[in-house]
């Protein structure tokens, strides 16, 4: 059994209805940020969730933890249905499921010391208090590469990379099994990014952690994930083992995403290029049929009218596209 199972999870946001809509009881516009997503994460693995801004990947991460209450669907963690838990049981469950946020500036309270920030989960979950809590906090701080002597400092006294370490310490202090890493390295410079990635991998190995790693950066996802899920406009379009998805992408969106990444070492002239036209459509008014058809070079009639079903491609690799059978690829000669 997978550690985390997500089935048909949706998160919809209703726009504020106009007066006419209120009078006529018209529900108005709905943003389908996450729309019927199913996925599973095995114990000890890193599932990389990749997609562009606005595709719903962060919302999905938060809906799994019920930081945003899902509109529909089920989340099961280690056999317990998280989506059915009452608040006290949910709180207890959160001890085992944590999150690291993207922005190391906005996610730390500037008026609290590091000891207070990192120690808060200990108090919330009644794990420890007083001197004992301080000791645990100091230990975790050293574990993430900071010094115990920095306990009484404030976030502004740290650099971006160090702040991200504080955020990691806060997620670790309650001894969780599963962590949603929501773009934890996107705000950092390259050399600092590498330090944090190395730290996250080391912690995973030493503490037996499981990650849902959310990022828009294919290089990062490709480097540290065991499996990958590709998201577009609230839906997962392709998923599979990292080697299968990156080396043999089957969905045209995954193919164009991969070909758009500037690569070191690939000669400019040799690289097959797929250029997507236009921007991501508005999730307020998503295209009918396959949501990618407005930008897809392979789109035909059926793509415009019917949403494709997710199809198993063998080897735990699956994709949702009408034209999978036709052996079409946007990438000349593959990668």
């Amino acid at each position: 059994m997978s550690l985390l199972e997500v089935t048909g999870l949706s998160k919809h946001y209703a726009g504020r209805p106009s007066l006419v809509q209120r009078v006529t009881r018209d529900p108005g516009q709905v943003v389908r940020a996450v729309n019927g997503v199913s996925l599973a994460v095995e114990r000890g693995e890193v599932l990389g969730l990749i997609g562009e801004s606005g595709c719903g990947k962060s919302t999905l991460g938060r809906a799994i933890l019920r930081l945003h209450e899902p509109s529909a669907g089920r989340v099961t963690f280690d056999g317990t249905e998280v989506t059915a838990l009452a608040p006290p049981a949910l709180k207890a469950m959160r001890r085992r499921m944590q999150i690291i946020f993207q922005d190391p500036y906005a996610s730390l309270n500037p008026r609290r010391t590091v000891a207070e920030i990192v120690g808060l989960p200990l108090a919330l979950h009644g794990i420890a208090s007083g001197e004992e809590a301080r000791e645990i906090t100091a230990r975790v701080l050293e574990r993430v590469g900071l010094k115990a002597g920095q306990l009484d400092r404030y976030p502004h006294q740290f650099s971006g990379g160090q702040r991200q370490r504080i955020g990691i310490a806060r997620a670790l202090v309650s001894n969780p099994e599963f962590i949603v890493c929501d773009e934890p390295v996107s705000a950092l410079d390259v050399s600092i990014q590498a330090q944090i990635i190395a730290l996250l991998l080391e912690l995973k190995r030493d503490l037996g952690l499981t990650y849902l790693f959310i990022s828009h950066d294919i290089s990062v996802i490709g480097y540290l994930s065991d499996r990958v899920a590709v998201m577009y406009l609230g839906e997962i379009v392709e998923t599979g083992p990292v080697a299968a998805v990156l080396d043999n992408p089957r969905h045209p969106y995954t193919q164009s995403l991969l070909s758009a990444v500037p690569e070191i070492g690939a000669r400019r002239d040799r690289k097959a290029r797929v250029r997507l036209q236009g921007d991501l459509p508005s999730p307020l008014n998503p295209p009918k049929g396959c949501k990618f058809h407005t930008r897809c070079p392979l789109a035909t009639g059926i793509c415009r009218s019917a949403a494709p079903q997710t199809r198993d491609l063998g080897g735990a690799h699956s994709a949702a596209c009408h034209r999978l059978d036709e052996g079409l690829s946007l990438l000349e000669g593959g990668r």
């Binding site: 390259v190 050399s191 600092i192 990014q193 590498a194 330090q195 990635i197 190395a198 294919i218 290089s219 990062v220 490709g222 480097y223 540290l224 990292v242 080697a243 990156l246 070191i264 070492g265």
Partner: peptide, 30 residues
């Protein structure tokens, strides 16, 4: 980029995570 000479450039290139380096440790600049 192919044969960097300055240790910083070398460190910068070595710290970029790449799918090709999966399973190998990256060597961040300390």
């Amino acid at each position: 980029i192919g044969a960097p000479r300055h240790p910083y450039t070398r460190g910068l290139l070595a710290s970029i995570p790449r799918p090709a380096l999966r399973g190998q440790p990256i060597r961040p600049i300390v």
